[in-house]
């Protein structure tokens, strides 16, 4: 091999060009070979992706342009579903409630676990057993947890009202009150989603170098000052990641919680967009309209994600 290379160098332009070309051919053949192997390894993924992700994303957009019910033949209506959604007098309330639920759940679920994780890391020998208790709610499904919370929230025999009666508060019908049903749903969602984020933050905190705290302590920084000027800046990538995961978890988990606790009631007071989509599609069989709503949600999520990516450049510091 080496000999032939030397030969080709001696043989001048023609042969060297020949060599270069054949080497390119080998590389191309290798790429082609690698692509074939990649196709083999990614084949199952690709088939599933095409049938159950790519096609549905396109097909959803298509049926959003139809008056589509599984019971009747579909009928082309163009953008009418979107128009109906935008001009429905119920829509502003629906969107407002969705924002209320999403923000009311997401902010505590991003902030509280960080505080808990930091406090836990300072608890010495109690850190492990306490962390184990804090994380325990991840064993319950949203449905199982909601079934228990529904009983805690009960008006006459519920433990929450009993606890409140001890401090002189008269009983509240949590899940059947226009005012309190949404806070009740949010509180339970927070309880459910906190443990997962405690784990993520705990892992993030372990990557903060200990000598940074030592240096801060030598400078006389209080615990809170250390938290603000060492911990938070060092784990901004974790905070950002937790935020993204929480957004996904809220979108995925909210249906289960609402369906068991309130079914969107009373009088729509806990009916958020994702629940409305389900009801329109699978109870009212307005699948075209529900698809249009789902695409409106998609657009909103896309915009929020884009804003996040732009903003994260300002406050997330990757070391």
């Amino acid at each position: 091999m080496q000999l032939s290379v030397t030969e080709s160098e001696l043989a001048g332009l023609e042969t060297s060009r020949f060599w270069r070309r054949s080497r390119n051919q080998i590389k191309e053949k290798k790429d082609w070979n690698a692509a074939l192997w990649a196709l083999l390894f990614l084949g199952p993924n690709l088939i599933l992706f095409l049938i159950f992700t790519a096609y549905p994303v396109g097909y959803g957009l298509y049926i959003s342009l139809y008056n589509y019910s599984i019971l009747k033949p579909k009928e082309w209506v163009g953008l009418e579903n979107y128009d109906t959604f935008i001009h429905d007098p119920k829509t502003p309330d629906l969107i407002w409630r969705s924002i209320y639920y999403a923000v009311g759940t997401t902010i505590p679920v991003v902030v509280l676990p960080l505080i808990v994780a930091v406090l836990l890391s300072n608890a010495g020998v109690a850190t492990r057993p306490l962390r184990m208790i804090y994380i325990l709610p991840i064993v319950t499904s949203p449905v199982a947890a909601a079934a228990v919370w529904k009983w805690l929230y009960a008006k006459d025999f519920g433990l929450i009202n009993y606890g409140l009666s001890l401090v002189g508060v008269s009983p509240v019908d949590w899940l059947y009150s226009l005012r309190w049903s949404m806070p009740a749903v949010i509180l339970m969602s927070i309880w459910l989603l906190i443990p997962f984020n405690i784990i993520l933050y705990t892992a993030g905190l372990q990557e903060v170098p200990g000598d940074l705290y030592d240096a801060a302590a030598v400078d006389g920084a209080s615990s809170f000052q250390q938290f603000r000027s060492v911990t938070v800046p060092m784990i901004t990538p974790t905070i950002f990641f937790v935020f993204l995961i929480t957004m996904i978890n809220v979108l995925v988990g909210a249906f289960d919680v609402i369906n068991v606790l309130t079914q969107g009631g009373p009088l729509q007071s806990t009916n958020v967009l994702i629940y409305d989509i389900y009801k329109n599609a699978f109870e009212n069989f307005r699948m075209g309209y529900a698809s249009a709503q789902a695409y409106a949600l998609f657009l909103a999520v896309l915009i929020i994600t884009l804003i996040n990516w732009v903003l994260q450049k300002r406050w997330v510091h990757y070391s």
């Binding site: 049938i51 159950f52 992700t53 096609y55 549905p56 994303v57 097909y59 959803g60 049926i63 599984i70 996904i248 979108l251 995925v252 994702i274 989509i277 389900y278 599609a281 699978f282 699948m287 529900a290 698809s291 789902a294 695409y295 949600l297 998609f298 999520v301 896309l302 994600t305």
Partner: peptide, 15 residues
Amino acid sequence: LMIPPQVTLIPTFLV
């Protein structure tokens, strides 16, 4: 991962 599950839910059901 960023596609809300509600977007694919209905068409996947129809598939």
